[in-house]
Design a protein around this nucleic acid. Sequence first.
DNA 1: AAGAAGATTAAA
DNA 2: TTAATCTTCTTG
Length: 191
Amino acid sequence: MKLWNLPTLDLAKELLGMKLIHIDDDGITSGYIVETEAYLGPEDRAAHSYNNRRTARTEVMYSEAGMVYTYFIYGMHVCFNIVSGPLHKPEAILIRALQPIEGIEKMKERRARAKNEIQLTNGPGKLSKAMGFTLHDNGKKLNEGNIRIEEGMNIVPDEIISGPRIGIQYAEEAVHYPYRFWIKNNPYVSR
DNA sequence: AAGAAGATTAAA
DNA sequence: TTAATCTTCTTG
């Protein structure tokens, strides 16, 4: 897919409105991507791969674009990312929020705490839980297995807002980089 | 081998 | 504001 040849910041915007799909034994869950964050590898202090840090966890970030990167954080949450950029350049895009499409009943089961449909997927840990993503999905290739991405809503540039990323206060000069993108007025965006 | 911190969430 | 909770990474 030529989508994966885009620079990471462009891909982060291009992903908005696209449909993310997970197929497993429990059926299908899917949603439109409404919020993303770009992490630009070696030069980005907020990225796990800052300064080309290469460990078992970050290894998948060095592979070709279109791979899935999942990691565990804060002792309780899985975050779902899409690897981007050229081979050997450790860049990735964190999916921060979805607008549910299919499998909403299944999502409600997985996230019994959510009070309404919006709370199902309006945060990185929440969407992973609702969609059923786990650490086992790390290293999978999009569209070659049970995790797929398709054209969805058509988003025009006017509807895309950018701002600083969330939860990276330690990142010094990178704290204010406007690498977070979301769809204007979409109720499923986090915060 | 052990300890600290973290791309978060939910409840007080 | 804070606890929950555990992987990853760093240090000794």
